[in-house]
Amino acid sequence: MTVSKSTVLVLDSSDPEPLARFYATLLGGTVEPAAGDPDLLLVSSPTGIVLGIQRDLGQAPPSWPRPEDSQQAHLRILVAPDALDEAEREAITLGARPVAAELDGTRLDRRSAVRRCTDPAGHAFVIAAVPGVPAT
């Protein structure tokens, strides 16, 4: 018998409350403390838990997009193709910072179906246009 499992991506943050509120607002969700762990907040959307934010007083933002560094991991937020620009504006209004990434020395085309950003604590995320994702 396979044990039932669930997973959640957890981001470290020296100040988890504002970061959790950023993602809850961006994803249309809510923030709740994790049972039994006072340093972990869970961001839930109408479809379930989507992200954890954990207090780590020593957390330092990733250095991506420097060419010598890897982004290690990132969130991919999926939106309908016709909602990409609006979703990017919403994220930036909430405190996200757009990332001017380059590939092979060539600046990425703004008409791309992917917009690269960092959250207020410096974690990488992208907003990606995906056909079939319902528009709101």
Rank of each mutant, 00 (worst) to 15 (best):
H123Y: 08
T30C: 10
L9H: 08
R111C: 05
V99A: 13
P81S: 01
L19W: 06
L94C: 04
P81I: 02
D15H: 04
V79P: 09
G58I: 11
F125R: 02
G36T: 02
A101K: 08
L42G: 05
L94H: 06
S6T: 12
L108M: 11
D69G: 15
S13A: 03
T25V: 11
G58V: 09
P131R: 00
L108P: 14
V126Y: 14
V133T: 07
R21P: 14
D37W: 15
T106R: 04
L9R: 06
G95Q: 00
D39T: 02
G95A: 02
A128E: 10
G95P: 03
F125E: 05
R115G: 03
V126T: 15
G132Y: 15
A91G: 04
R116Q: 11
P16K: 00
A113H: 14
D85H: 13
R76G: 02
E17W: 07
R55V: 01
D37Y: 15
L9I: 09
P134N: 00
L103V: 10
R97T: 03
S4T: 07
Q71M: 09
L26K: 01
T7V: 13
A129Q: 00
G122I: 10
H123E: 07
V31T: 05
V130K: 02
V50Q: 14
T25F: 15
G52Y: 06
R55Y: 03
G48S: 12
G48R: 08
L19Y: 05
V130C: 07
E68N: 11
P81T: 03
R55E: 04
R76H: 03
V3F: 06
D56L: 06
I49W: 09
W64V: 03
V8P: 04
G28T: 10
R55K: 04
A60I: 10
T2C: 02
D15V: 08
R110A: 00
L40R: 02
A83E: 14
R55A: 01
G36P: 03
V114Q: 03
A83Q: 13
I127K: 04
P65I: 06
A20C: 13
T136Q: 09
R97Y: 05
L26P: 01
A80W: 12
A128G: 05
W64Q: 02
V8A: 02
R115Q: 13
V43W: 01
S4Q: 11
R89A: 13
S14V: 07
S6G: 07
V3G: 00
F22H: 06
G52T: 06
L41V: 15
E32K: 00
V126F: 14
D119F: 09
P33A: 00
P46Y: 00
D12I: 08
P46E: 03
G122M: 14
P65H: 07
T118Y: 14
G52V: 08
L108F: 11
D39A: 00
E17N: 04
Q54F: 15
V99Q: 10
D12E: 13
T2W: 05
E86V: 12
P46C: 01
V114D: 03
L41A: 06
A60N: 12
R116D: 14
P62I: 03
P16Q: 02
E68S: 07
D12N: 09
G28D: 15
P120Q: 05
L41Y: 09
P62G: 04
G132H: 10
I53N: 01
A24L: 11
G28W: 15
S6Q: 09
L78R: 01
E102C: 12
A135L: 14
A24C: 14
